[in-house]
Amino acid sequence: MNDETPAGMPASEYGSEFGERLSYLIGLVLALVLTGAAFTLVWMKLLTGGAALAVLGLLAFIQVLVHLRCFLHIDLARSHRDDLKLILFTALILLVMVSGTIWILYDQHLRMMP
């Protein structure tokens, strides 16, 4: 712990207020663009049916990544591995639970009398 900052942190970790503000601003702009794109797609009826759902899902996925990176500061740095692993494992469990539930319920629904 022979770092020069009072917090005992390396300068890279400490960052600068300007840099971090920039990161929040980038996050905000990206989020606005992605949100705007999603809503515009629906308002203007640019796509319909499955294609629309797929694009909307993709936009949402990208926006989640933007939020995780810019607002929640999750990145690939070594120091954040525990949290990243936790999030990835959660994503796996969520995938199993949600896709399994939807699969089961839709399958049952198809087999029911109308």
């Binding site: 199993v96 399994g100 089961i104 049952q108 087999r111």
Partner: peptide, 18 residues
């Protein structure tokens, strides 16, 4: 253990593949 829950309700009416 997160991937086997359906075996508690095999008889509920989903298709054989599930």
């Amino acid at each position: 253990s997160f991937a086997v829950w359906l075996h508690h309700f095999f008889t509920m009416g989903q298709s054989a593949n599930v």
